[in-house]
Design a protein around this nucleic acid. Structure first.
Length: 613
RNA sequence: GCCGAAGUAGCUCAGUGGUAGAGCGGCUGUUUUGUAAACAGCGGGUCGCAGGUUCAAAUCCUGUCUUCGGCUCCA
């Protein structure tokens, strides 16, 4: 950590301390939990019995904090033995601190993983030997805290309280819930202002906001939470992306299949999903039969039925199925949000049934497809090899797991992918390769995945006849390139800020007339027909608006190309396209309109990210 | 699920117990527009939904649905 960062860290730490000072002053019965530094700021978990602090209290809390700051109280650090500290916590009625200290004492020389080193006043490098914990005092307020703190309360830079939220004590939902007060803090007012501006900018990209502005999707109270509806424009996005994903896989020998969206529970009891995902399933009740049905939460068990419908020879392998289809999962209501987490999830799903010796080739092809797709959408890919850990949450033979994990790694290495390995991230039925895509503002998202599966072939007793004429068990490879279309779109909309490349853009060309003269309207119609002839998504704006207004509207809709059409164009037959800023590489020149549409159609076909005009 | 906040016109929002508002969008008319907002007029809301309190409820109370923030982030 640089000196500057250390200073900033001490400031934020001190602010958490000062916030605790203020809250304790306002509500003397407040019980303090933990108050660490986080990215861009700090928080403190506080439990005030019978009082609910709300954001409207921020003013008085901030006012109280400024009182402390303006008093320029020095922070005085002191050390105390753990036993003395426990006595302190008891006498000052701080049960949460007392609990932490007791756990610390019980843990002896090793600190339990979930203990908060910051709050306990333990330096990381001292973890193995803890006899004393540190306290900081300012004025008449003392708090257990590791620090570091700044020298006095006035040296804390600029801050702002941001929000308040419930947080379980030590992250366990069986524990009491405390109130977490968040603040952001920076060394200078200017940096704080810049941060707040940045947050505003990020808000502008929010796919939920753009979804409304660009008329892409919506939610209806009557339909239900987590169940998005897509408008014509939004559906273009879905179709363009899934067509591409399907095309990439069909060119590698995948055949489309189709399965119904509900099934008997027996299928998931056989697959092993019932035990794991039972409470996430939507139950469907038949009024005609006694069938217990559910909406499908995944497609693989269905696809195994198709595979198992015939006897397969080693010569038939691999068998590759692809289906872009919607699955339904009853997520916890509080976890739903925009398109990122929904209850109707459309996957560009595919399953390969292959011989063990074909694994590497199959994975190679899928990795190459993922690479191509993510290049086209302009996102950098990093790969996570997700392995099992030592827990018993996984099904299947451990030796098979180890073998599978090695094969995944080999394929990733031979594809020269940037990768890292992580234990405990695997699916319960096998290890996987997760693709982490980086968006335009540097956030990383997990989207595509390739997963190996030795468990379902066993559970469903899948087999093929090997070269020696004996039955053998195939390996299953699950793969989704986009992952879930909904989540992909939430990321992609924010990645592009709604400015989609020509091939994805719901509206590719807008033709705006300068006036409503018959001659103009006729020529506009001629242009529209030409665009349609080239398969372009074109809109005509013949409204009685000023040219300036029409341009503004087209810009707001993020239309890649706009043509303004009047007498000049009619006379010459030439158009000068207005190119959306992010696509433009050079000043556009005028050209015959036939050539213009031809070029745009080519750009869409080859999925380029910049304009060639 | 839990804690907190919120839901008023298509969108963004004002309105704290006494006749529901603004801007933008929409529609109509005037204008016939040349590269980021012409002018005028007119529509448009059971104030999320259901109960309750009150002479009177967008406003107060209860329930419910929906949305947002958080519950993982810590040297």
């Amino acid at each position: 950590m640089s000196d500057k960062n250390q200073d900033l860290h001490a400031m934020r730490h001190s602010l958490a301390h000062i916030m605790a000072t203020a809250v304790t002053k306002l509500w003397p019965e407040a019980k303090l939990g933990v108050g660490p530094v986080v990215e861009n700021g700090f928080y403190y978990d506080i439990d005030v019995p019978k009082v609910t602090i709300s954001e409207s209290d921020f003013k008085i809390i901030e006012k109280e904090m400024y009182k402390v700051i303006n008093a320029k109280q020095p922070f005085e650090r002191s050390l105390m033995s753990v036993d003395k500290a426990i006595a302190w916590a008891k006498s000052s009625h701080q049960p949460y601190k007392e609990e932490l200290l007791n756990d610390l004492k019980r843990a002896g020389t090793t600190v339990a993983k979930d203990l908060d080193a910051d709050t306990l006043g333990i330096a990381t490098d001292e973890k193995s030997k803890i006899d004393e914990v540190s306290f900081y005092q300012n004025g008449d307020f003392t708090d257990l805290c590791r620090g570091p703190h700044v020298a006095s309360t006035d040296k804390v830079g600029a801050f702002k309280l941001m929000r308040i939220a419930g947080a379980y004590w030590r992250g366990k939902d069986t524990n009491p819930q405390m109130q977490r007060l968040y603040g952001v803090a920076f060394a200078t007012k200017e940096e704080l202002a810049a941060h707040l501006t940045m947050l505003e900018e990020a808000k502008k990209r929010d796919h939920r906001k753009l979804g409304v502005e660009l008329d892409l999707f919506l939610f209806s109270d009557l339909v239900g939470s987590g169940l998005p509806l897509f408008t014509p424009r939004g559906t273009v996005l879905r179709e363009e992306l899934t067509n591409y994903s399907n095309q990439l896989r069909e060119s590698r020998g995948f055949a489309k299949v189709w399965v119904p969206h509900m099934t008997k529970t027996d299928l998931y009891k056989a697959s092993g999903h019932w035990a794991k995902f039972g409470d996430e399933l939507f139950l469907v009740k038949s009024q005609e039969t006694s069938d217990e049905l559910v909406l499908k939460p995944m497609n693989c068990p269905h696809h195994t039925r198709i595979f198992a419908s015939k006897q397969r020879s080693y010569r038939d392998m691999p068998i590759r199925y692809l289906e872009t289809t919607t699955v339904y999962r009853d997520e916890k209501s509080g976890e739903l949000g925009g398109l990122n987490r929904v209850r109707s999830i459309t996957q560009d799903d595919s399953h390969v049934f292959c011989r063990p010796d074909q694994i590497e080739t199959e994975i190679d092809g899928l990795l190459a497809s993922a690479h191509e797709l993510y290049s086209a959408v302009g996102m950098k890919l990093r790969v996570r090899l997700s392995y099992r850990d030592e827990s018993d949450a996984y099904l299947g033979d451990k030796k098979l797991w180890e073998q599978a994990q090695k094969q995944l790694k080999a394929a990733v290495i031979s594809n020269k992918l940037d990768y890292f390995e992580e234990e405990g991230e695997a699916a319960f039925y096998g290890p996987k390769i997760d693709f982490m895509a980086t968006d335009a503002i540097g956030r990383e998202h997990q989207l595509a995945t390739v997963q190996l599966d030795f468990v379902q072939p066993e559970r469903f007793e899948l087999e093929y006849i090997d070269q020696g004429g004996k039955p053998a068990q195939p390996v299953m490879i699950h793969c989704a390139l986009l992952g879930s279309i909904e989540r992909f779109l939430s990321v992609y909309i924010e990645h592009t800020a709604g400015s989609f490349p020509v091939w994805v853009a719901p509206e590719q060309v807008r033709i705006s007339s300068v006036n409503q003269e018959d001659s103009t309207l006729e020529f506009v119609k001629k242009l529209e027909d030409e665009a349609i002839k080239h398969g372009l998504r074109v809109h005509v704006d013949n409204d009685n608006d000023s040219v300036g207004k029409k341009i503004r509207n087209a810009e707001k809709a993020r239309v890649p190309y706009m043509l303004v059409v009047g007498v000049k164009e009619i006379e010459t037959g030439e158009v000068t396209p207005r190119i959306r800023n992010d696509l433009q590489v050079q000043e556009p020149s005028s050209m015959q309109y036939q050539n213009f549409f031809k070029s745009v159609a080519n750009e869409a076909k080859s999925r380029v990210s910049k304009s060639s005009l």
